[in-house]
Design a protein around this nucleic acid. Structure first.
Lengths: 253, 253
DNA sequence: ATGCCTTTGTGAACGCGTGCACAAAGATAG
DNA sequence: CTATCTTTGTGCACGCGTTCACAAAGGCAT
């Protein structure tokens, strides 16, 4: 069980709470919009509503970065944009490799939100030899066989996995072996990575399932038992446990 | 400020913590995999590692659902699959409409993970008249003008927004007016919705930015100031605040 | 039937995140 | 220069989520 860790960054990140880090991009986006409208300063109240958060939370978040901001006035937009960008590491160029050029991979390759934030799609990689050379979003797809070299040559440290679930772990291992230390995983798989490698997971169907839960709570509850097909009471398919007739514990709740 | 709320479900959801709900799909996936391998029972320890979580957390999560599980043995896989599915509302059919059939919308329409979880893509909607009628993932794209009727006719209560950011709020309003009460938003926009409507947000570039932050912490820190272009010290572009010469507070940290 | 062994279910402690509420800080007007 | 007004920055309290650790519960062997 040496390589079990997943998803939690081990290093607590120099005092800035993880929850705050997750909100910084939100602030940055709102600030960028203000900057484009040439708004010079903004109060915590205004910026908070623009970002969809509480103003107290926003101020506390900023306090972790330092005392940017002028009492009685607010925050200087340009200055704050720069500070947050720097804190997030967006002042440097991040070459990104996308592995698995299916529908989703292609969509990500075309996604504009990356380039505008300092992320550059440096390579597209797929296991299908037929795709090799095909341009997607203006970039030629390369074959998995060359993964190692591609990662090294481009200095890629962030990899995006959009492969089928069965291939995800293998691709992940190869990426890590090639030097990738941050992975954004779209495959519905739990990835095992060595210490020091960060994995973030985006699962499209999970989000829908969470919505369905709340949706059921909203609409349902009154129409409680709709049709109610027979719950699979087969706690003992054939193998173990109970040759003692039927299972009584079918309706525990 | 009547329609300000976003993202937080107001109803606390009958005692099941939000964090637990968010993990149920994870457990469900792991259990489904076990089920396909015809594994009859599983211990909290095994299931926890398969789902990538702590075993104590898993047991506590399940305790909110009720006392399914047998001490000394573990959990019956099939039974648990059913219970979690029911709790999440996946035993019923959820017609989903996707609005904005660009690269991402098309990718989602083709995504297999939806259908296998009880979600059915009932309609694809786009504002481009040229796309109307075009089949995507076997479904003909319909025009935004008919959005209202499409939602009603199909009984859609969950909408997915994959439009450009500028159109997101408008589409959102129309979806809500048509009866949608849950929205999965892929556009980088803060949506305003009335009370009772749930919004979940998936932002691809935010995830990358969070990774970049940790990446910078890992690799950087020693190579602290790389090239360091001039930080925008223009705290006063022209308008307000300070005709008092230069700003001293350029390097507060 | 009895005792051992495994695994669940949960009480309790702890730590993180959130929100309140206010004092300190600075701008602005007189 | 003084008073007033605005807005930040933060100490504090509270609640949620996580984790530990163990008693209760059940299976299984003898």
């Amino acid at each position: 069980m040496a390589t079990g860790r997943t998803h939690r960054p081990a290093t607590r990140s120099r005092g800035i709470p993880e929850a705050t880090v997750a909100r910084l991009p939100l602030y940055l986006r709102a600030l960028t919009a203000l900057s484009e409208r040439s708004v010079p300063t903004v109060s915590s109240e205004e910026l908070a509503t623009a970002a969809g958060v509480n103003s107290a939370k926003l101020r506390k978040d900023f306090s972790y970065l330092g005392s940017y901001g002028t009492r009685g006035v607010g925050y200087d937009v340009e200055y704050l944009v720069y500070q947050i960008s720097r804190e997030l590491g967006l002042t440097q160029d991040w070459p990104v490799a996308i592995v698995g050029i299916g529908n989703l991979g292609a969509a990500l390759a075309n996604y504009g939100g990356f380039a505008s934030r300092g992320f550059r799609v440096a390579a597209l990689i797929d296991a299908d030899p037929a795709m090799a050379g095909t341009p997607v979003a203006g970039i030629a797809v390369q074959h998995t066989d060359d993964l190692d070299r591609i990662i090294s040559d481009n200095g890629v440290s962030i990899g995006v996995i959009t492969t089928p679930p069965g291939a995800a772990q293998q691709v992940c291992d190869r990426l890590v072996a090639a030097g990738v230390t941050s992975i954004l995983n779209f495959a519905p798989t739990v990835l095992s990575v060595p210490e020091g490698v960060d994995v973030r997971k985006v699962d499209l169907s999970i989000e829908l399932q969470i919505l369905a839960f709340h949706e059921q709570r909203k609409a349902g509850e009154d129409a409680a038992a709709e049709d109610e097909g027979a719950p699979p009471m087969r706690a003992t398919p054939a193998g173990r446990k109970g040759p003692d007739g039927d299972m009584p514990a079918v309706m525990p709740a």
